[in-house]
Structure formats: C-alpha cells, structure tokens
C-alpha cells in the first residue's frame, strides 16, 4: 500500500530528525552564542550512547520497570553529562574560546580522537547492544497510528525532541539566561561590560548543549548498537544539519533536521545507494548558493 509506506517512511523520518536534532542543536547554539565551533560536539552523542547501554545493561539486577529505565535515559544520563561537561568547559575547552574558528576546528578534532579512545578504553572497540530484558523499546512494543503499526518507543523519542525544542525556545524567550544568551550572540563584549558574569552563562549554555547531545545518544541505543563509528557518523551529519539550517539558528536546526531526517528515511526506502550522497550534496549546495544557510542571518530564536 503506497499510503501506508508513505506514513511509515514519514514516521521514520521524524524519528531520524529527532535524533539529528539532539545531536546538532547544541553545536549550533555553542557556535551562535559562544562563538565556538566544536567539532567534538557529536562525540558526546556517542558518549551518551555508551553510557546508556552500560546503564541499561546493569540496571537489570535492580529493576526492569519501563518508567525507571526511561527516566534514567531522559533525566539521569543528561544530568551526569551536564556536570561532566561543566568541568570540561572549565578545563579542556576554556582556552579554545580565544582562538580562531579554523584552529578551534583542528583542536576539537584532537578532542574527538581523545574521546574516541576514552570510550574504547572503558567499553572496548566491539559494538555493544542493549539486553532484551531492559530494552525499553521492546517493553513498549507497537502502537497503532492511523492504521499503521509503529514503535511506541520511537514515538516517545519524537515527543521528547519536540518537548526539548519547545523548552529551548521558551528558555531563550522567557528566561533571563535565555535573554542574556541572545544578547551575547549579538555582542559578547557589551554583555561583559554590563557587569554580567559571562563565564557562568558560558558554562551553562555549553553544558546544556552537550547534555542534549548525550540525551540523543542515550535515546538512540535501544534501537541501534553503540560503536565507535557512531561518533564519526554523527559529527558529519550534525555539521550537515547546522550548515543547511544556518549556523547559530535554533529554527534552522529544527528545519534542517527534518529535511535530512526525511531524506534519509525516504532515501533508504527508494534510493539506498544514494541516501548519504544526497545529504552531503545538499550540504554542499547550501554552502555554494546560500552560505548563511536557511536561517543563518537571523538570531538564535528569530
């Protein structure tokens, strides 16, 4: 049935888009607000994936309750990574804010290499998967959506992504932190001169951004294996997303994640050999014809 396959592919596209959104939104925020081009950003997506597999596989002795497992994926892991990234921002990343973008790109390429080995050191180089007993995607099973059976877990991931996007939007529009961040993306030095502690804002924005990437990785593993290659794949895809959306734009990330998610989903179904080629082709076309991206010449939330 063509209508059914259209629905299934659209649903899968939304799921891919949700993962891409988690992996890349922080990259664009850190660039737009803090002026740091962090190539290693998606490595935290990979880290989140590994932490989640480890957590789920060790949770079996204590509990197999779906709610507890989901809470660990959505709340505990991002919180742990939040604290970790606050420490990293003060140490490893601190000197990077002072140097040119091109050197930031190179130094954070070094960070990717380091994180890659830290992950291999802790969890080994071979792919690991979540045990069936503590796999929330199996526990939740399938639901019926307009006559098509889809994974309840994937629907949950899509909902979390929507909640996360709305939450970020509200944070930028309603809270003081969000308003200061917007001001910092306009004129960093002016904000500093107004007596606002920019370093504290920097740590918060950086840690929130990295924690969202880890959240994405954590939500990704019940359906996929954690491998060291995940990091490298998402580094590239997240760059494609933020370039197409426009560097520094929240709306851009949402739209570009949807575009690439749909391209992947329909590409896998109809042109499996060309699916990734279309993504990189799109990325190249955007830089050639519209380097500022779809929404890059606007502010973070406009």
């Amino acid at each position: 049935m063509p209508i059914e396959s259209l629905l299934v592919n659209t649903f899968n596209g939304l799921y891919f888009a949700a993962l891409l959104f988690f992996a890349s939104v922080g990259l664009t925020l850190v660039f737009g607000i803090l002026n740091l081009l962090n190539m290693a950003h998606a490595a935290f997506y990979g880290l989140g994936a590994y932490v989640a597999v480890w957590t789920l596989n060790n949770a079996g002795d204590v509990t197999t309750s779906t709610v507890v497992l989901l809470a660990m994926l959505v709340l505990v892991i991002p919180l742990v990574v939040f604290v970790l990234s606050a420490v990293l921002d003060k140490t490893v990343f601190a000197p990077l804010y002072e140097i040119e973008h091109v050197y930031q790109l190179l130094a954070t390429f070094g960070v990717i290499l380091m994180l890659d080995d830290v992950i291999k050191f802790i969890w080994g180089a071979s792919p690991i998967t979540v045990d069936g007993a503590t796999d929330p995607s199996r526990q939740l099973g399938a639901i019926d959506l307009m006559g098509v059976s889809v994974s309840a877990y994937r629907s949950f991931v899509i909902l979390i992504a929507v909640a996360c996007a709305v939450g970020l939007y509200l944070m930028f529009v309603k809270t003081k932190l969000g308003k200061i961040s917007q001001a910092m993306s306009e004129d960093y030095e002016m904000v500093q001169m107004l007596g606002i502690n920019v370093n504290r804002v920097r740590v918060l924005i950086f840690s929130i951004s990295v924690a969202i990437a880890a959240l994405g990785g954590a939500l990704f593993v019940p359906f996929a294996t954690a491998t060291p290659a995940v990091t490298l794949e998402y580094v590239l895809l997240s760059f494609a997303v933020i370039v197409i959306g426009g560097l520094g734009s929240l709306k851009g990330v949402v739209v570009a994640a949807l575009v690439i998610g749909m391209v992947r989903s329909f590409g896998i179904a109809y042109f499996p050999a060309l699916e990734l080629a279309i993504v990189f082709g799109l990325m190249a076309l955007v830089i050639i014809f519209k380097p500022e991206g779809l929404f890059g010449d606007e502010g973070v939330v406009e």
Binding site: L37, V102, L105, L236, L276, A277, F280, A284, P291
Partner: peptide, 26 residues
Amino acid sequence: KTHEIYFALLTLALAQLLYVLAARDV
C-alpha cells in the same frame, strides 16, 4: 569563493560525497 570555516565545511562535504559514492560503489 567561500571563506574560512565555510571553505573547510564545503571541501569536507564535497570530499565526503566522493567517499560515499566510492563506498556504495555507485
């Protein structure tokens, strides 16, 4: 025509396009 990081990202995208074509044996 592009500059700085855009040059880096564009050359990255074009080279990766070639990689994908070779890896998928198009």
